[in-house]
Nucleic acid binder design. Structure first.
Lengths: 337, 337
DNA sequence: TTTATTTACTTAACCGATTAAGTAACACGG
DNA sequence: CCGTGTTACTTAATCGGTTAAGTAAATAAA
């Protein structure tokens, strides 16, 4: 059995394809009676319109893209959840692209979007994404783009972020209140604006508490788990941190692993705070004090603002800047309070 | 600046659109010199072909769909990872659909696939998906479909699963070896074949060890976290289980939560095994004994077999049945060994 | 030399839906 | 009775590639 097309419906009903098309889109040009007949036959034959024919003609795909570094991270997983909930409600389709923290892959993916494959893009950039991200600046001019979490500050575009500097400041202050004097910030990237803002909050907190910022205070980690693990172990042995802030979920578990391997007690030897959305954080040994980002809400917010732009081209998308607060959830990997 | 089309290239080079099209696809009908000129202009003008025009004509979308219950679960997240790695390598695009365990949503999603939107489907069905899943049987006839993990046994189709019955048998035997005599199996669904196969392994293990199977041995949980939580607490208080097998990741954390609230010690009062891929399982308090599924590999295998079918229509996709073993990782939430 | 074949194109139909423009039939006001 | 609208359609162009079929020129084979 062939695929049912509008033309087949037209022939069966002795009508033109135009009439069928209009009837199915409930046009006022078509009589009620004809609409009924068309609809009846369409359901009888199980007609499903070809989305690509429609996309080609209407120049809109009813599809959005989500571009993220990885999916096996509870932040991104929950963010997708939030995005998908909005997309499903609006009847849009969601394409997923994983960059695996590779700027090259990211660029290739973004270039493809110039084809009109998607009506809009939600993106959280890679740790490698450089300041002069030319592809991004270009893309933003062509189709609606919303950055979430990992934004690119050099590009003027809609953004949904958390209060990174604040969060890092509070986390740092919390460690200091717990007695830490030699705190290390584990950063995922030198380029990432969220990393830099977190570092900024960290520095500010140290300064406000008259603690020195040394060149071992901020530790730049790798995307390679094995490398990061080695780096961490070496750093922990050499620098004798009494507090660590892991700015990504993967880094938080890496810290637990390294401490276990070095027989360092948490929080006895090192107090730990992780930027993480792990639902199991409270069941960890010890339970992990976290900076929890509202991942679902951020995805939801980013998608919502994107759809506003898709609905109305006059919507000032690029001016949209939402900051959704994250919260410090104090557990047993830190001592204060 | 308008979008660059093949026609624009044709006009600039005083060639027909056919020549451009063939040159870009490296057809033997076109001279090397012309190919060079076309390619040069294409890159100069940053030509990106319209995928929908091509899809419409070629009746292939270079897109696959992944249909899963949820994404905020490390099994599914890692499976997506595996799928995406194959798709990216093959230059395919990946559409994600979340059913949120709703059979209705699943059906609506599947129906859309009759439109030719995707060339193939990878699916893990919902807990509600009934035996007579008519939509599925239909879909399998129309386009290549591969079930992974949560298969639909009534439908003849390619499958990538783990050895569920074995895994459950081993988990049960492990608990029995640790002294458990009143084990509860927390199941996510009555319909799901993986649930039933796990239950089967569970029953067999009980039988082989002369332990009774009572009507409280298998506890069917809800998709609602709140409901499940209440159900669990009630059951734990009434039935005095000394061992629990949580057959999903969410259920595993629910058990930890319930035990905490009821002040039940793990493994002192209740020993716990979870079907889970949580990277933090080893850091939980106590560390969780898990049945770990090779999620990435399963996604990878499912995608690989799907692409074989997409490449060659004579490939006997429906006969493909892969069972990838899961492993019991013994930690401190159980006593044996 | 003539015919066959190859090379390097062009022409035009096509995929399936959408939509601007056109038309026939009928109603209605003046 | 004429002109103006309205209703309910149809015709045909269009979106941007792809491809079967055709062609003119060059080359090879007979």
């Amino acid at each position: 059995m062939e695929n049912v097309t509008i033309r087949m419906l037209a022939e069966r009903l002795q009508l033109s394809t135009a009439t069928i098309s209009k009837a199915l889109s409930n046009s006022h040009e078509i009589s009620e009676e004809t609409k009924q007949r068309v609809l009846a036959l369409a359901t009888e034959l199980n007609y499903v319109p070809n989305p690509y024919a429609s996309s080609l003609r209407k120049k809109s795909s009813h599809t959005i893209a989500v571009v993220i570094p990885e999916v096996a991270d509870s932040f991104f997983a929950e963010a997708i959840n939030g995005i998908e909930s909005v997309a499903q409600e609006k009847g849009y389709h969601v394409l997923i692209y994983l960059t695996h923290e590779s700027f090259g892959k990211e660029q290739a993916i973004l270039k493809d979007f110039q084809s009109g494959r998607v009506d809009g893009v939600l993106i959280s950039v890679t740790t490698e994404t450089a300041a002069a991200a030319h592809g991004l600046a270009q893309l933003v001019k062509e189709i609606p783009v919303v950055f979430f979490d990992r934004v690119c500050e050099e590009v003027t575009a809609a953004r949904v972020t958390t209060d990174d500097a604040n969060a890092a400041y509070n986390a740092t202050a919390h460690l200091i209140a717990g007695g830490c004097r030699n705190i290390g910030l584990l950063s995922a990237s030198r380029h990432l604006s969220i990393s830099n803002r977190r570092a900024e909050g960290f520095r500010q907190a140290l300064a406000d508490h008259q603690l020195p910022l040394t060149d071992t205070s901020i530790l730049y980690c790798s995307n390679e788990p094995a490398e990061t693990r080695q780096l961490l172990k070496t750093a922990l042995q050499q620098n004798h941190y009494d507090g660590l802030i892991a700015t990504t979920e993967k880094l938080a578990t890496a810290v637990y692993l390294a401490c276990e391997e070095l027989s360092l007690a948490i929080p006895g030897d090192v107090q730990v705070i992780g930027f993480s959305n792990l639902s199991t954080a409270r069941f960890l040994q010890p339970s992990l004090t976290t900076v929890s980002q509202p991942a679902f809400d951020m995805g939801h917010a980013a998608a919502t603002v994107l759809f506003k732009a898709l609905k109305s081209s006059s919507f000032p998308l690029q001016e949209q800047q939402q900051v959704i607060p994250s919260s410090l959830i104090i557990r047993n990997s830190t001592k204060a309070l």
